[in-house]
Design a protein around this nucleic acid. Structure first.
Length: 565
RNA sequence: CGGGGCGUGGCUCAGCCCGGUUAGAGCGCUUGGUUCGGGACCAAGAGGUCGGGAGUUCGAAUCUCCCCGCCCCGACCA
């Protein structure tokens, strides 16, 4: 494509609305334009990248036996009522005003609907169906360009099996295919175990890239590649050391001491000899939770232990339940009846100091075996940066991550809800066992830019670059240079390479170089006076900035070799 | 949904607090000329209901109220 004839609206200034590099560069390089909050138009260059990514996904899905569908975005609301997901999605689901239709935010219902009508026998299984289509979600707060939008392209696939073993196999095929997809797209990614949340089902993993723009927090081990969402991450932490000898409880006057740090300093003891007390309300039940020292409670873990929604108690509730304010609460002398649980680091701890349930007083020599009627000791703490990896003891890093894919073992939630059954070998009707596997296409593009850019612009990997080569005619007034660059343009194209040809006559050389770096094709070919004197053209590798010259007559081979390698 | 910020030519912004010429700058765009290896230069132009509405005032981009849109933080995120 000739830049002089095409639509390549680059912009020099950083757009005011864009904060993260990928968003800024996708606007500046003319990949897309914003239409509304979380809604973007993809321009030819951006769509070219999208198509490359989708093609890689297609190839890898086809390689594991996937069959591509094209499904409706308009769905009858009834089918979403059947699975209870109108309620589950709530305001996230877009509703059509003048028909009983919704805009599909995902396609489990529709796939299952097709399966219900067509799959009869275990002989029809397994099936692996996928689609690459636009999904609609009324995000409360779109952000970070294309990373969280109200409309986005997603590859969703759905596996249907007749046995749990079959599901495991389908799931593992996807895990492997996903690794190949992200690797081919040039992404540096990692995999974390995840909770399957409201999707239902048994197991799930998230594919993520590390980025400050991410919305998830993850504990990562660079040594053994342990990776876990902070919501479930663990680390090796020493348990309480049990001291010799029985000491009686001791009330200590601690004026204005509220925090563990203040308490430890005041009493000249380790923070680990202090037990922090927290009060949560789970359903209607007040729960008293003990954490060692400054350990932070992890509410997701707490919720998992209690099996119900939890919330911190209000200050008035604290006073009513314990007789003291936050900072003076402890296990001894409580006013109300509590369910009591503690972090497992505190199991068997003694000689501990905690609140006296009386403002300005703490109690020392607490023995958790003797004095605390805990119903159980659980892992309730939040892992912190630098703690030891649970599998190899190397220091963990706590980082932000962007989710680029998620695979679920759904099980039978949707097949039961929609009655998608098959007859097994004994002629008995069974619900189809399903899996669901998603990849955000725009997110791959944005994440690639997050990982591959510099101050001058995008640095595309060869696999997803919209063009293989950016050819620059530096001096449009020189007959020789125009002729050589035109010939190169034609002969490179005839080799099957995708060439972006900067043949503009109206812009200066510097402008062309800046645009080439901004657009980020892997290889730049510069035809200019400087090297044409020697019958040479310059090649520049965008990623490294490395430049070298080749003779004009061998340029096509040199470029071809670079692109194919 | 809570908190904060912003809305002025295509883009980035100044002007607003303290109302008063014809609403400005840089970039971009058009025309002509000079340039041509890292976002050139000169000259002449085009382009604005100052987000919308109501109000205060002799007079509103500027003050008041309402609405809309966008961005950021938080909540939320199968």
């Amino acid at each position: 494509m000739r830049i002089s004839k095409g639509f390549f609206p680059t912009v020099k200034e950083v757009p005011a609305d864009a904060v993260i590099p990928s968003h800024q560069l996708m606007i500046r390089a003319g990949l897309m334009r914003q239409l509304g909050a979380g809604i973007f138009s993809f321009l030819p260059l951006g769509y070219a990248v999208m198509k490359k990514v989708m093609q890689i996904i297609r190839e890898e899905m086809d390689a594991i036996g996937g069959q591509e569908f094209h499904l409706p975005a308009l769905n009858p609301i009834e089918i979403w009522e059947e699975t209870g997901r109108v309620k589950a999605f709530g305001d996230i689901l877009f509703h059509i005003k003048n028909r009983a239709l919704v805009l599909a935010p995902t396609h489990e219902e529709i796939i299952t609907h097709i399966a219900r009508n067509q799959i009869r026998s275990y002989k029809d299984l397994p099936q692996l169906w996928y689609q690459i289509q636009t999904k609609f979600r009324n995000e409360p707060r779109p952000k970070s360009g294309v990373l969280r939008g109200r409309q986005f392209t997603m590859k969703d696939s759905y596996s249907m099996d007749s046995s749990p073993e079959g599901l495991d196999a389908s799931y593992n095929f996807h895990a492997e295919a996903y690794k190949r997809i992200y690797s081919r797209c040039g992404l540096n990614f990692f995999i974390v175990g995840a909770s399957s949340g409201a999707m239902g089902g048994s197991g799930s993993q998230e594919f993520m890239i590390e980025s400050d723009a991410g919305e998830d927090t993850v504990a990562l081990c660079d040594h053994c590649h342990y990776a876990a969402n902070l919501e479930v991450a663990t680390s090796k932490m020493p348990s309480a050391v049990r001291l010799n000898g029985e000491k009686p409880l001791e009330e200590i006057h601690t004026p204005n001491i509220k925090t563990i740090d203040q308490l430890a300093k005041f009493l000249k003891i380790e923070t680990n000899k202090c037990a922090k007390s927290l009060v949560y309300i789970s359903g209607d039940t007040p729960v008293l939770i003990f954490m060692m020292g400054n350990d932070q409670l992890n509410e997701t873990k707490l919720q998992a232990v209690l099996g119900a929604d939890v919330r911190p108690a209000q200050p008035e509730e604290l006073l009513a339940l314990t007789g003291a304010d936050a900072g003076s609460i402890g296990p001894i002398g409580l006013k109300a009846k509590f369910k009591i649980i503690a972090d497992k680091r505190l199991e068997g701890a003694n000689g501990m100091c905690s609140g006296a349930n009386k403002n300005d007083y703490h109690i020392g020599n607490i023995d958790f075996n003797r004095d605390v009627k805990a119903e159980g000791y659980f892992d309730l703490r939040t892992v912190e940066d630098g703690e030891s990896c649970p599998s190899c003891s190397s220091p963990l890093r706590i980082v932000k991550g962007i989710e680029i894919g998620h695979i679920f073992k759904l099980g039978t939630k949707y097949s039961i809800a929609l009655g998608a059954n098959f007859l097994d070998e004994s002629g008995k009707e069974q619900p189809i066992i399903m899996g669901s596997y998603g990849i955000g296409v725009e997110r791959i593009v944005a994440c690639h830019i997050e990982q591959h850019h510099d101050a001058n612009g995008i640095i595309w990997s060869k696999s997803i670059a919209p063009y293989d080569v950016h050819l620059i005619c530096v001096n449009p007034d020189s007959e020789d240079i125009v002729k050589t660059s035109e010939e190169l343009y034609n002969s490179l194209q005839s080799k099957g390479l995708a060439i972006l040809f900067d043949d503009r006559t109206s812009v200066s050389a510097g402008f062309k170089f800046k645009d080439a770096d901004l657009l980020g094709m892997p290889l730049q070919v510069v035809v200019g006076e400087r090297n044409m004197k020697n019958q040479e053209v310059e090649l520049k590798e965008r990623a490294t900035g490395k430049r070298w010259t080749v003779k004009v007559q061998s340029a096509v081979d040199a470029v071809n070799q670079f692109v194919k390698n």
